[in-house]
Amino acid sequence: MSKILIVAEHDGGKLNASTAKSVTCAAKIAGATIDVAVLAADAAVIAAEAAALAGVSKVLVVESPANKEPLAAVLAPQIAKLAAGYTHVFGPSTTFGKDVMPRVAALLGVSQVSDIMAVDGSHTFKRPIYAGNAILTVEAPAGAPVVATVRVASFAAAAAGGSAAIEKVDPGAALPSHTRFVSRSGASTGRPDLQSAAKVVSGGRALGSAENFKLIYSLADKLGAAVGASRAAVDAGYVPNDLQVGQTGKIIAPQVYFAIGISGAIQHMTGIKDARTIVAINKDGEAPIFESADIGLVGDLFKIVPELEKALG
């Protein structure tokens, strides 16, 4: 019988959608009991959101000023203590989970299963290797805890409608003071979140400048879409790094993805493999993006994008 603990991701005030997706992954394990751990300074709202996820039995709350910022060195010893009695400990494969979960795994004396994209059994999982160019099926040993990160683009969010019990706990772990939070930048843009948006409009190097990227923002706003970018556009300084889509940026699974002036390098395509529909607009008809696009339009983006925005009314 599997007993799964999911480490909640949040921004200090609200639960991140990656948690609901991790719950869906955990629920693929037959007969599993799923609990969620919320470590925060002020956990009331976050815990209530976690308790409302369908399939969650219990929410464990560790409320402490030390948990105000998600510092792996501070969180990991607490999570490792909470993990006692659980067969599995899952976290999202976001920058939060990638940071903290391997530290938890080491404290529990196991290697981690990184980036679960499919569940074949309680200890058998599929995960991408070589930037998604191969899919590895691994079997973790029974009798040791399974510590894993969940590739959030591979799972839908668990529905609301649950009513889990919320329980305050004190893991009693000694916490280090050698790591201190200084600051975070990358303010909210008012647009949908790139990682969870149903529609995404991305621009590439062909935009040519930060100024020209306004075309992308404008189309995105018309569609109610999030904005993304290729690594080339980020490296050229047209947009900040948190907009990067691809193997080294964000891996996303929107309903529709517009790739505008993006050639379609492998590392970019890895980030959008799970997009339902890919629309490519590029003046080079031979660009690799057209091999993966569901709908392609060959032409000058500077003409097409304004025209498209207008045609959308």
């Binding site: 899919i135 099926t137 973790a140 091999e291 569901d294 392609g296």
Partner: peptide, 22 residues
């Protein structure tokens, strides 16, 4: 750390369509 059950190539996407205009 884990037993390799198998390694598969990634599933390929279906070939899409090219439209002529906006």
């Amino acid at each position: 750390a884990f037993k390799t059950v198998k390694v598969d190539p990634p599933p390929s996407r279906q070939k899409g369509i090219i439209v002529k205009d906006v």
